[in-house]
Amino acid sequence: MKKFDVFKKGLFVENPIFVLLLGLCSSLAITTSLTNAIGMGMAVICVLLMSNFIISLLRKIIPNEIRIPVFIVIIATLVKCVQMLMNAYTPALYESLGVFIPLIVVNCIILGRAESFASKNGVVDSILDALGMGLGYTFAVLIISFFRELIGTGGLSLYNPFDASQIIFQFSFFSDYAISLFTQPAGAFITLGTILAFIQFLKVRKANKAKKAEVK
């Protein structure tokens, strides 16, 4: 089941946002709504998949001396293609994600996976790793935006990215009690800090249990 482990570790154990703390710039900025989160997640998965695929295909040809510049060029080209495609097919999403689509280029996740995994492993492993990391990123961003949108606007909503007028669902639970701080930048930091604190709490509890079992 080694292939499945490669895929699975990107989801939880080495989740790029919650564990590795990479790519925080974009994850804090675009988590104001679920639609943005899913859109950005899709874009990151696309770029990660293609960049891991191409780099692992070319890993024997790229000279070791200049591999970082070559990776950056490949990733920049891919991101520009994705940006232009999003501008054409998902204009509403492109508007709301704004400058953070080009900033995927400097998202540490993509370059990090290219350097540490795709340049040393086969094509299938790299694709699985990209899928795992991309889904882990999407999952993390969804969680953050779930809380931010729920507490910040009192409801959840999801639009079809390809056709902004088509609403997939739109709930509004308690808009009178919404704390609009959470849709603002301060709320992003506080939400992420609390989620990381929760994860650390789980880790500490597990470590304490292991210590107690050891003592016995």
Binding site: Q184, P185, F189, L192, G193, T194, Q200
Partner: peptide, 16 residues
């Protein structure tokens, strides 16, 4: 559970 990064992020939130 807040030691390290979580409390740093919450500090950043207050600064924001």
């Amino acid at each position: 559970s807040f030691k390290g990064t979580p409390i740093a992020l919450i500090t950043a939130g207050i600064m924001a």
